[in-house]
Design a binder for these strands. Sequence first.
DNA 1: CTATTAATTGACCAAGCGGTCATAAATGTT
DNA 2: AACATTTATGACCGCTTGGTCAATTAATAG
Lengths: 197, 197
Amino acid sequence: MTVGRPRKFNPDDIVRIAIDVFWKKGYEQTSVADLLKATGLHKGSLYQTFGDKKTLFKAALNTYYEDIYTKHKNIINSEPDPLIGLKKSFKEVLSYSGTMGDQSNRGCMVVNAIVETVPNDAEIKALAERQFQRFNSLILGVLVMSESNGRKFKYPPEMTIGLLMTLMTGLSVNLKDMINLEQANQILEAQFELLGL
Amino acid sequence: MTVGRPRKFNPDDIVRIAIDVFWKKGYEQTSVADLLKATGLHKGSLYQTFGDKKTLFKAALNTYYEDIYTKHKNIINSEPDPLIGLKKSFKEVLSYSGTMGDQSNRGCMVVNAIVETVPNDAEIKALAERQFQRFNSLILGVLVMSESNGRKFKYPPEMTIGLLMTLMTGLSVNLKDMINLEQANQILEAQFELLGL
DNA sequence: CTATTAATTGACCAAGCGGTCATAAATGTT
DNA sequence: AACATTTATGACCGCTTGGTCAATTAATAG
């Protein structure tokens, strides 16, 4: 069915590699040359396939988000009690960012993108907002369901989400060089306890 | 006493202007041209006085931090009960970053710097760590003093600080476009309540 | 075997970057 | 008034940046 010379690479693989590079170094500090080196592609191929650097970044950010969202959803659904699943997924995502060569951590790519590009770039800002909202909804569903099953929390779901998401954002940043994974886990667990989760 | 042609500008004023520009746009996205435009200086003057872009950035980051640290300290000391002062200073610093042209906020400059430059730059990382530790000590002093005056908290001071600093970091980021100042204040107050502050 | 289509390749480009430097101008000292 | 010292000024530089493009190669369809 396909006519013409076939690609030697799988675009999806390239996006994953791009995620890795952008995640580590950020958007601005990643040069197109860096991407070429990491992917082994030639300039023309990359530009023909992905348009330009920013488009590739947005594709990477989006794929990153879909991955992490799916990860959460799966963990939540794998537990009989979704609330247990929710807590489990938060803790697992904490270590997802992984420790790099030195002891620093790369944090959450979405958080990094927000800090770096807002308010400089409206499109990425809009993308991050959508992702943030969708993630909030996922958590909201779990909390509301738990409540309707008789569970009582310290605060209404919206406030619980606000505190939880804010803390996660903070952990993502502070893991970069202020705290280690163990401390982060302790902080997160303390917050669960405080919120009555 | 001074020999040679006198400066037409005050270096300290320039650093404040540099803070403003770097804070808004970040390190990489701020060009030397931006700085010249904002300060009205000429290239040679800037380089002669401050060395280079990164040195100026570090000077700006340091001054920013000293400002904010002093601000906190003053507010804490201005209250008969330092614990009240502590809470007040946190809330005040929240609005310190200010709303920009659009509805986005520039967050905390130190947080921005950590996200942008760690792990790319070891010096800035070290600077941020020092500042973080010194700030922690300031809070620790207040909590320990309150405890020795009979106040009881939900957690030991170290954990309280961990939760508080992490939340503040998260608020700084999320204020950029996820939440507004009012929501941020509510979240912060809820956290105070949870921690028994 | 030829035509068609698309991917590969590397040379190329303008613009912007951070940074330098020789010269001119302004002050205090002698 | 001449000198020493410092700052002001803007032309200048090499390099890197993101991005383009024409020629070449490789596959498939007829």
